[in-house]
Amino acid sequence: MNITKKEYKTIAKKHEGTSKLYITLPKTFLIGGFICCIGQFFINLYSYLGLDIEKSGIMTTVTLVFLSALLTGLGLYERIAKHAGAGTLVPVTGFANAVVSPAMEFKSEGLILGTAAKMFVIAGPVIVYGILAAFIYGIIYYITGLFM
């Protein structure tokens, strides 16, 4: 071939095209912000029902996870996500979607090796690195605590 990889790369780069930020960002902002408002609504609701601030936060997470699981099951989460981009990815609902969707998808390979084994195929890294980071912080916190 009479073209080098480098020349090819310049040509390819030119035609790549980029996401139109002026379309994606406002939608991300609106939908992401809206999901957080739903969270705020439930925090207020559970506080009103008498839970303390910590417990209402936990119940809000559980509620949002439930709603996201339901929307995923109905096939609606993906349709919203198509417009929202990171707006549905970054909130905890995105985490739930990442757990529920492979559980559904791989059910055809059985409840053990499909649903259960594949459940954390996307969300697993979030837990692994979250726990690892917290563990490292825990060690630092513990050691500094010994000398204070």
Binding site: G73, A81, L89, E105, F106
Partner: peptide, 17 residues
Amino acid sequence: ERQFRFPINYGGVRPPT
């Protein structure tokens, strides 16, 4: 999709390419 990318109901973001 399920072999090469993500589960059908996963709300991942597809780039324009």
